[in-house]
């Protein structure tokens, strides 16, 4: 049964609510980095990736690598939503003597393909998986989520060369281009523009989308499926902290934990968005 656009949008907001709760309890953050990819994860896990709790160990499953491992709260949230593990695990996020670390951790957590946290690792490993898929004539695809700041890391550009050279059309990169990195705007810290042109010059099938627009995300994936020769990249223009007005496009909410009134107000704002659907 085909999932509707409204259902996908609803799921994205539901993930935001879950993340708020997790982060509030954890006393941690990266909330902005999680909110910017809510719609992307909603579409990926609801209809694009061939990954489910049933096939999570199959050789033919698709692989998803969260290279921007600091935004893992929302990945844990969608994995529990999709029944990879029980929802009450989310309450253990960041807690002592538990498994859900503050950066993506594959160990003992079903559905996490790769442990990440140090930026610039996921794409190379994804290249290896995609290359293995070609060698073994498998049909799976590999999707790697990068952050914009992560593209400062030179290792990515080694992998970008590699993927194009080997024509890994089973490899897809999504860049969460929310324009803010650790200490400021990307344009102030390390300019990556002209960004899409860089990928095109490196011989990648490159599409820019509004990363919060379900229709655009869907049609982009559809186009990627037809690509025969090149790896594909979706440059998803997003807003850091999307969904909560006072978090949007601010460096502060890379770090700050919503507590008290801020927490309550954030929940109210997301609920308002839910009611609008």
């Amino acid at each position: 049964m085909k999932i509707t656009k409204n259902e996908l949008q609803y799921l994205a907001h539901k993930l935001r609510l879950k993340v708020l709760k997790m982060i509030n309890k954890a006393g941690s953050s990266h909330v902005g980095s999680a909110f910017s990819i809510a719609e992307l994860l909603s579409v990926l896990y609801s209809e694009y990736l061939n990954i489910s709790p049933e096939n999570v160990k199959d050789d033919d499953r698709d692989r998803f690598i969260m290279s921007k491992g600091h935004a893992v709260a929302i990945l844990y949230a969608i994995l529990s939503e999709k029944k990879f593990f029980p929802e009450d695990w989310l309450e253990t996020f960041y807690q002592n003597d538990t498994m859900l670390a503050g950066h993506a951790t594959a160990k003992n957590i079903p559905g996490i393909e790769l442990s990440t946290g140090s930026l610039g690792h996921g794409l190379s490993v994804g290249c290896g998986m995609a290359y293995a898929g070609k060698l073994d004539k498998k049909n799976y695809k590999v999707v790697v989520m990068l952050s914009d700041g992560e593209c400062n890391e030179g290792s990515n550009w080694e992998a970008i060369l590699f993927a194009a050279h080997h024509k890994l059309n089973n490899l897809i990169v999504i860049v969460d281009y929310n324009k803010i990195q650790s200490l400021g705007h990307t344009s102030d810290i390390m300019e990556i523009e002209p960004f899409a042109d860089k990928w095109r010059m490196f011989n990648w099938n490159t599409i820019e989308v509004d990363g919060h627009n379900i229709d655009e995300i869907r049609s982009c994936f559809k186009q990627f499926d037809n690509e025969q020769k090149k790896p594909s990249v979706m440059i998803a223009h997003t807003v850091k902290g999307k969904g909560v007005s006072f978090m949007e496009d601010t460096v502060l909410w890379h770090y700050r934990t919503p507590k008290g009134e801020e927490y309550e107000n954030a929940i109210k704002e997301i609920n308002k968005l839910v009611n609008k659907i």
Partner: peptide, 10 residues
């Protein structure tokens, strides 16, 4: 990194 990805694929 590629080696790790290949190894994870058997």
């Amino acid at each position: 990194g590629v080696a790790a990805g290949l190894a994870m694929s058997g």
